[in-house]
Structure formats: C-alpha cells, structure tokens
Design a protein around this nucleic acid. Structure first.
Lengths: 221, 221
DNA sequence: TTTTTGCATTTTGCATGCAAAAATCCGATT
DNA sequence: AATCGGATTTTTGCATGCAAAATGCAAAAA
C-alpha cells in the first residue's frame, strides 16, 4: 500500500497561537496593549475557549503577560529582558555550532552556504528586509544542523521575543557590513569544522548584535 | 503601614499546572498514560476549561504530548530526548556559572556554600533523597545567581523534564562520591570567581550526569 | 476462527452561559 | 474645577452544553 499523507486538521488553538504570534512579532498588536477577548474572537472568528488557550500558551513563550482578573496584554518590550535573552541565545548558538561541526552532513552545510550566498546578494542590493529573512534562516538552519531538537525548540521560543525588537530597522550601515563579514567567517569555520573558532565567532556575533540593539534602544529613548 | 501578603487568588489553571507537573514528575501520572479530562477534573475538583488550559501549558513544557482529537498523554520518556535536554542544560549552566562569577554577591555565594555543606552531610549519612534535594537546590541557586531571569526560566523548564527520569534511584556509589567531589570543585571555582574553570567544571559535571543516566537506562532496557 | 462492519458509548473540541470582578460613567459634593 | 461615591456596563474566569470524532463491542461475513 502506498503512503498517503493524512488529512491535516489543526486544532483551533494552534492556529490561533500562530496567528497571534505573528501579529505580535509584526507589531500589529503593540507591546503593552491589552488583549480584549471579545475583539480578538471576532477578528479570528473563533470562540473564547481556544482563544484563551492560545493566550496562555503565548504567555508561556513570554510574548504575552497575564494580568490576573484583568486579562492579558502584549508583553511590554524591556531592554533588560532583551539583553538577557540574547545572552542565553548566544550560549545556545555556540552549542549549536559545536554540535553542527560534529554532526552536520556536508549537504546540510552546503544548504547553509547557499542561504549565505543569497544573503550576501541581498546585502549588496541593499535589500534589508530580504537580508534579514535570510539572516534569520541561516541562524535557524545552524541550530537545526546541530541535530538537537530540544535545542531547536528552546532557541525558537527565545527568538520570537527578539524578533519583536525589530532591531533591523535601526541597523547602521557599518554594523550591517560587519555582520556580513562575521557571517562569512562563521560559515568558513563551520565548513572547516573548527569547533572552537565557530563557538567564539557565534558568541561574538550575538554579542555584537546585542550591542547594536542596545545602542538603537538608547537612541530611541 | 505594615506589609501584608495579599490574599492569594491564583487562577485555577496555574494551580492545576503546578499540581499536574508535580504528579508527572513524581511519576504518579506515568509516562505514556492518557490524560482523561473527566477523571482529572474530578480529582482536582475543577471544571474542564482551566484543566484544558493547564494541559496545553504542560504540553509547551514538553511534559505532555497532545494527540489531536484524542486528548493528551504524559510525554513518554525517551533516552534521546533526555540526552538532548542535558546537553542544552550543560550549556545553560556553563553560562550561569560565568555570569554568577561576575555578578553574584558574596552573600549569595555563601548561601550556595551553606547548601553545599548540607549536601555533603547528607552524602555522608547516605540519605540519597535529601542529598538529591540539596543537589537540585544548588544547581538552581547557581542559575539564579547569574542574575539572568530568562536563563532561569529556560533552565527550570528543561529541568522538569529531567527530574522525571529519577536517575537518582540508579546512582552508583562511585558516581555519587564522584559527584560530590565535583561539586566541591565547582564551589571552589565559584568562590575564586574563576570563570573558565567553573564553566569547564559545570559542563563536565553535566556530561558525567548524562553518562550515568544513560548507563542506568541501558541497564533498565 | 478471524476479520469486518454497524452501532452504542465515551471523549474530545469548541461554543456559550453565568456570576464575580474590574472598568466606566455621572451626578453630587466640596 | 476636581474628587468622591455609587450605579451601570464591560470583561473576565470558570462551568456547562452540544456536536463531532474516537473508541469499544458485538454481530455478521469471510
């Protein structure tokens, strides 16, 4: 008998989580704004039960803050929290790099290089939005290449919180150029399977990202 | 005016999460067993709405697996997943140690030493259960001493999954002795604020733990 | 005897109802 | 004009209702 892909029927609460996560990351639901259940139910065309389940899940991801007896709000953006998160992500990426050096197949690394080439192209064109998308894809791919699914889940969860900061909007030209150079080095270290070097590069890359985001936040304040 | 602790009115779903998490960690809800909503509602004396919210949250922690249209089950224990989790926790503890060296107050470190002394005492007495409790407390305290709350949350979440394995039951005498020696070294490095050494010690300590758990699992299989 | 099919029961997923808490409004009072 | 108090409305938290899906089981067919 031939393999048939099962009919997919996602639960409503999952769909709701994904939709709301996107809304929050894209800023359509602004940090600090209250989540009115009735309103969101109407917009998503679902009832309160799955919506409330979704809100609780987003709260566990840190994208939403629960206010007892007063519903929930989109988690406010805090500089300190962002720094904390990036610090943890740096450690996770360093681990991912190490594991990827040891476990990733050559094909997987080639895929990462392909993404890298695309990203460099977008940098050359000055297409910041596309650059940013490839950049994200590369980091995620490295984490996946580690072969540690738990690491991947943990990373993604933290990443959602960082995406909201939309630091890409405040990326200076110098920092952008530097980031691309760093990426080239990261890829070279991965291809050489140089664990120590890759660990250090990934760690520093994230540290620089934090510095750049912090600066942007200071300017905004 | 004197500070009064407010009358606690925790949401039912939070209470339910905590209770069920304990039940799962303690094995009263066995890995792989189905979660019958009606039954659990009766046991916890709550209705299905907060219960279902709790189940979804536990699923995001990885303690529960959702089976679409067929409810949920306690997440089965998998050797590979445990190894993955410990690998991530090792990286997080290494980071925590580094941050603790830099940020922790002397008092905080003294508190950790106090816990360590107690733990050594329990080891001397052969009181494995108490030893295990102090051991946990020390690791959590180091993570807290990092001052990075996000790191703490991430660590605790992963930790819940490890606690279920109850590797302490299969702890060999030699490994136990060795673990205590490792802890003494860890504490010394923290007190000396020797970042590099502490990182390495914590990392190795976790690696040894994984090895010991794996061995126990192999024996059980 | 084993497999398949139809039916009854149970369980789940989602919607809705209800009471309590919070927010809002609005006039009275200072 | 600002503030307070109280009633009114809104919103939340939890319970329950209902339909669809899954499960169990016995009878029919192979």
């Amino acid at each position: 008998m031939q393999a048939i892909s099962p009919i997919s029927r996602r639960p409503l609460h999952e769909e709701a989580v994904d939709r709301m996560r996107d809304l929050i990351i894209q800023g359509q639901l602004a940090p600090g704004s209250r989540l009115n259940e009735r309103l969101l139910c109407e917009r998503l065309r679902i009832s309160r039960t799955p919506l409330r389940e979704a809100i609780k899940l987003l709260a566990s991801e840190g994208l939403v803050t629960l206010l007892p007896n007063r519903g929930a709000q989109v988690a406010p953006l805090e500089q300190g929290r962002l720094a904390e998160t990036l610090e943890v992500m740096a450690a996770l990426e360093a681990l991912a790099g190490e594991l990827a050096c040891r476990n990733a197949t050559a094909e997987r690394i080639a895929e990462i290089r392909a993404l890298h080439e695309e990203m460099v192209e977008m940098h050359a064109r000055g297409d910041l939005v596309s650059y940013f998308r490839y950049n994200q894809a590369i980091h995620l791919k490295i984490v996946e290449a580690s072969g540690n699914a738990t690491l991947g889940n943990t990373y993604r969860q933290l990443n959602a919180n960082v995406l909201r900061a939309r630091y890409m909007a405040n990326l200076s030209r110098e920092r952008w150029d530097e980031a691309v150079r760093e990426h080239a080095q990261i890829l070279a270290a991965l291809e050489a399977r140089d664990v120590a070097r890759l660990r250090r590069l990934l760690h520093d890359h994230l540290a620089h990202k934090l510095a750049s985001v912090s600066q942007a936040a200071v300017r905004a304040a």
